[in-house]
């Protein structure tokens, strides 16, 4: 091939890279910039700490996202509280305790469920979980923060299990051998040596799970009831994501309402980026290699 051909190839590839990188940076810039004007207009304090979200009121709309923000945080924290212990134990089971055949079966199942569209989870939540909660707890409606937490917990289980298992599998056998040689039992070794040694990877799995929970819109939309109350466990709630999903179609182009929704997007973006950055920060601080 001639040098001219080489240069042409390099130019085309460079254009691809430039397009991709420009796109990625533009998106990041877009998320950051499009959300700021409305926040400034509404006021930082009123926006983040305002307790009333009533964007449809034409005369005096109120754009306080505290109920949405808290619902998102409670939802993700609740889901993580349920899914993380269960997910880590399952990952440990797959990486160490399970017989090969069993591990392969469970892994297949987890992988399949990791790919299931979120609306399918929402559908089952809507038709099984919500009526069940209503009957069992004798509520006026089963659509609630609790329903959202349970659906989210199921949804983030597969990625938490998969990532945590990868991290555990990467722990060098030498650590465990050293522990066995000192007379530790298998589970003592797994819990006290393997799990801590996989620390940052496990933390990344947890952070990813929480990030997913914060970002999920559709499944939650189907089970949470979507009223912008200050969140209570058994009451109907609206989250940051569902707030956008519900209203974006109705907000007129360029209106303050639409821009406020973009500001919610910015809050979501920041939350997710923080979650993703957490494992890196922890690694740096913790002094682990």
């Amino acid at each position: 091939m001639s040098r001219a051909g080489e240069r042409a190839a390099q130019a085309v590839l460079f254009l691809c890279a430039l397009a991709a990188v420009a796109l990625l940076l533009l998106l990041t810039a877009f998320f950051l910039s499009s959300g700021l004007p409305a926040i400034r207009e509404i006021g930082w304090k009123e926006f983040l700490l305002g307790r009333v979200w009533d964007s449809a009121d034409r005369a005096a709309p109120q754009f306080g996202i505290l109920p949405l923000l808290l619902a998102s945080i409670y939802g993700a924290a609740g889901a993580a509280a349920l899914a993380v212990p269960l997910g880590l134990l399952t990952a440990l089971f797959l990486a160490r305790a399970a017989p090969k055949g069993v591990a392969a079966c469970v892994r297949q199942l987890v992988r399949l469920l990791a790919g299931v569209p979120s609306v399918v989870c929402g559908l089952v939540g809507m038709t099984v979980l919500v009526p069940f909660l209503r009957e069992w707890l004798d509520l006026p409606a089963g659509d609630s923060l609790l329903a959202a937490v349970l659906v989210l917990a199921v949804m983030i289980l597969p990625p938490v299990v998969e990532l945590a298992e990868d991290a555990l599998a990467a722990v060098p056998a030498a650590y465990e051998e050293a522990s066995f040689a000192l007379g530790a039992t298998e589970t003592e070794t797994w819990f006290q040596v393997t799990l801590p040694a996989a620390g940052s990877g496990v933390l990344a799995a947890v952070a990813l799970g929480i990030g997913r929970a914060v970002g999920e819109a559709m499944a939650v939309l189907m089970v949470a009831g979507n009223v912008a109350n200050m969140p209570t466990l058994l009451g109907s709630v609206r989250l940051l994501t569902t707030g956008i999903a519900m209203e974006f179609g109705y907000a007129a182009a360029g209106s303050l309402r639409q821009r406020a929704l973009l500001s919610i997007g910015l809050v979501l973006f920041v939350l997710v980026v923080l979650m993703n950055a957490l494992p890196h920060l922890a690694r740096r601080k913790g002094g682990r290699p």
Binding site: F31, L208, G215, I244, F248, L262
Partner: peptide, 9 residues
């Protein structure tokens, strides 16, 4: 890691 609802907007 960005939620798809943001891409929707």
């Amino acid at each position: 890691g960005v939620p798809s609802i943001l891409y929707a907007m």
